[in-house]
């Protein structure tokens, strides 16, 4: 794997939301380059625009101006089919609210993206079981989401995000609805997967537990990149984190 391949490149991205007659500038010109295989945390207070940025990178929303490149492809140029393909094969999403499809079992949730990707049913079930075992839920494949705890649901979501071997996992506050221990477990799981599989993990968060495992931390403040810290700088300044907010 090349040392410095950019998997995501964001150039001069702005986003304006129209709330009635008022324009809200959620993003005011973000420039960001994300190296492949890294574990990135996008940090910032609520309302700083990190979720908006997250949606742009995930192709869920279009920027008002500026460009988002994934694997050097401008995602604004993609049509609906290509965008669906991108979401299906390239990107795995993890949400704060888990977003497991309630009417399906854990296994069916994990196999759904593989079915979309055109994989046969048997192959999808096999791989789904492998992934559920990987996240430690091999024996609970037939459970419905309401029979699983929050941490278990999030692990199903992680397995689902990995279903089509994506290059990028986007996690929007993955630990936001979890308690301390299960949150740490999920973070450790994500970190392990990122190391073992070379997946780029991008997580928007304000959970400081994330800092320990991040290769790079992007601080967002008021719609702009405040600063980007690598892991080495981070360990030095970790004492000051409490004062940053």
């Amino acid at each position: 794997m090349a040392e410095k391949t950019n998997i995501v490149r964001v150039t001069n991205v702005t986003k304006v939301f129209k709330l009635g007659k008022i324009d809200v500038n959620a993003l005011k010109g973000i420039n960001l380059e994300i190296t492949k295989g890294n574990y990135i945390s996008i940090m910032g207070p609520s309302g700083s625009g990190k979720s908006t940025l997250f949606n742009m990178i995930g192709g869920l929303d279009k920027p008002t101006s500026g460009k988002v490149y994934i694997d050097e492809v401008d995602i604004a140029q993609l049509d609906a089919y290509e965008l669906a393909w991108l979401r299906c094969r390239k990107i795995g999403y993890i949400f704060q609210t888990f977003n497991i499809i309630q009417v399906m079992t854990a296994l069916e949730n994990v196999t759904l993206p593989m079915i979309f990707a055109g994989m046969g049913n048997d192959a999808a079930v096999d791989k789904g079981m492998q992934l559920l075992e990987l996240v430690g839920l091999g024996d609970r494949y037939s459970h419905k989401p309401f029979e699983l705890s929050g941490g278990q649901q999030q692990r199903v979501a992680i397995a689902r995000a990995l279903a089509n071997d994506p290059a990028i996992i986007l996690a929007d506050e993955p630990t936001g609805n979890l308690d301390l221990t299960t949150g740490e477990e999920c973070i450790a799981l994500l970190k392990r997967l990122s190391q073992e599989r070379g997946v780029t993990v991008i997580s928007a968060t304000h959970d400081f537990k994330m800092l320990n495992v991040s290769d790079q931390v992007v601080w967002i403040r008021d719609g702009r990149v405040d600063k980007i810290e690598d892991r080495e700088e981070l360990s030095i300044s970790i004492g000051q984190i409490g004062t940053k907010e």
Partner: peptide, 25 residues
């Protein structure tokens, strides 16, 4: 059926058009 073992990163931009998402009936 598309080849499931192929890594997404080996697929270039021109390959995208042929690779569509499906949902069998």
């Amino acid at each position: 059926m598309s080849d499931a073992s192929i890594l997404p990163e080996t697929v270039n931009a021109s390959g995208r058009v042929q690779r569509q998402v499906v949902l069998p009936f």
